[in-house]
Design a binder for these strands. Structure first.
Lengths: 345, 345
DNA sequence: CTGTTAGCGCTTTCAC
DNA sequence: GTGAAAGCGCTAACAG
């Protein structure tokens, strides 16, 4: 089967006793007499014919391929995002080329080039590197979270500002008096930077003195958290804070472990809320690691695809689309109704 | 940039003042006079020329594309596998088309068809459905774990038999007297079925009466574990087992939680070893959920790609390749040297 | 509605 | 070495 040469449109035309163009029309759903359509369809079935994508692509300059650039799929957030991007693309008749660029700028550039040269119809990027310089306006690209100066690239993100406000408000609602923020941010500007603004805004709104760790994400995360902890211990070991909003679930989890190792109880002594909504073992059925402001990963992915499709059709698309986040209980807060892993819908 | 038509080989030839074929030769590294090569290379650089993959594919019937079929990337094992497949393919100059088939047999079939019709150069599949009937021998396919009757498809898997033996031996080494096995298997035959044989073998070798739960993976996992627990409680609530080898880390984790909810301590009262080596938040840096027999996911992925590449070159490849697994401490055993998340290398 | 035909951009003969 | 030319399989434009 593999060894034999695949049948071409010409073979189908011959077998059906019609012209090449007629076969093409049948395949592309262009009106053809019922009689001929039947004949062609039969011939196609008999020969097990399938269109050759190269020949078609050469002609149409369309591939029905979209490249997704993410750092990796080792991180469950990226992996989940990729999963839903693939689903959404598939529903749109597209296939996904996955690029795990993980810190290799040339690899990102290469995939961007694929789009430049019409090998893929578009690119969706969730990337932490300086992608901006490679692309021109009008390029079929949609980015998640990241902001590129002087570039008009449609962006999709969660409402990070509202999410941070929500985190603070939930902590207060559950009895915290002094919520702090532990931030480990990327060096690249993006929507997630607004978590800080949201935290500050919520503090101001509730008359709370803001207090936060503000560091660039680095391998010394743990040591920095340790320092932060020490600096907030009174001589009697009591902490000067009773609530933590962490930049991500990962940081929330690390800090929770650190607090527990130091003899503090979570959520009894300190309540913690993370950001992202990462699950144990499997999204979305698994339990959260910590109580969290959950990003609507599936909807974010769908929105990226929707916007890319619109863009490819030449439609006007909004420069920034923000999707709402949601608080969910995950064991690190004192909310007693807790239903950690209940599905979103 | 995107709006302008991409330069073709003809443009390069014109600019360089050579023939079309000469440009082609330069691009494909076929000997050409130094003078002409220079001219062509300059023209390419100036025009920012890139070969058109469709035209090339139409001619050569090669795409440098490989499809990876997995159920999804929501599960960290699959996601990690996909990540390393992508890396390995990239090192081989290939790009990865990702198909999350998740229970949609038609989707798998469709991607398999891509290979049938030379749209992709090969397929790697980690799938739990009846893929066997769609493929013929000689097809450029490599599968992970799964076994297809009457088909000669190269397979790659972990050494599940040895892994199960190792689990039992580790439990015994750490002081267990009665290790049981909790198995939730797929309905499709594969190498992971050999975990049962391994468990039985190890029991026999150490004069232990085997005792195991043997169920098909289903939504009632938890209830079945609950039943198992009840059936192994003496009237005084003491358990008739003191060690558990679980089919996967996920099942190990669920059972550990259930034991704890029932007042048993892990690892003090019961020690548990899972299978897979799933990490919290991120492979391989994150902590294990439980002590585990870890599959060498990266090496497995690399081996799949290596075999596929060999296969594509028409080389003879082994029908089954088994890679060694490794025990790692993850908190659910009484090994005291415990260094849970130390990297494999 | 149907059949014919001209390329899409490339690789690969084949003479030179 | 090099250049000319024949397609790869398809779509789309055109004449019938």
């Amino acid at each position: 089967m593999t060894s034999k040469k695949a049948p071409t449109m010409r073979d189908v035309a011959l077998k059906a006793g019609v012209a090449l163009g007629t076969v093409s029309k049948v395949i592309n759903n262009i009106p053809v007499s019922e009689k001929n359509r039947k004949k062609v369809e039969e011939a196609i079935a008999e020969l097990n014919y399938e269109v050759n994508t190269y020949a078609r692509g050469l002609k149409t300059q369309k591939s029905n391929l979209v490249a997704l650039i993410i750092p990796n799929t080792l991180n469950p957030f990226f992996a989940t995002f990729a999963n839903y991007i693939e689903s959404a693309l598939y529903r749109n008749g597209m296939k996904m080329l996955l690029c795990c660029a993980g810190g290799i700028p040339e690899k990102e550039e290469e995939y961007l080039n694929l789009a430049m040269n019409n090998k893929v119809d578009g690119v969706i990027a969730l990337t932490y590197s300086d992608i901006g310089k490679y692309i021109s306006d009008g390029f079929p690209l949609v980015v998640f979270d990241r902001f590129f100066e002087n570039r008009v690239i449609p962006r999709v993100a969660s409402d990070n500002f509202a999410g941070a406000c929500l985190a603070v408000e939930k902590l207060l609602e559950f009895g915290c008096k002094r919520p702090v923020y532990i931030r480990f941010h990327s060096i690249f500007p993006g929507e997630s930077d607004k978590r800080l603004a949201g935290y500050l805004h919520a503090c101001a709104a509730h008359g709370i003195e803001p207090d936060y760790l503000n560091m660039i994400e680095c391998p010394e995360n743990l040591a920095l958290m340790e320092d932060f902890l020490r600096q907030h211990q009174r001589p009697d070991k009591e902490l000067t804070f009773d609530g933590v909003f962490a930049h991500t679930d990962y940081h929330a989890f690390l800090f929770m472990e650190q607090l527990r190792q130091n003899g503090y109880r979570v959520p009894e002594d300190v309540q913690i809320i993370g950001f992202d909504g990462i699950r144990k073992f499997r999204y979305p059925a698994g339990d959260l690691f910590v109580s969290s402001i959950c990003q609507p990963i599936e909807q974010l992915a769908e929105k990226c695809v929707e916007i890319l499709m619109a863009r490819c059709c030449g439609a006007q698309v909004p420069p920034l689309t923000l999707l709402p986040v949601q608080y969910r209980y995950g064991g690190s807060t004192r909310e007693e109704t807790g239903q950690g892993s209940v599905l979103p819908r």
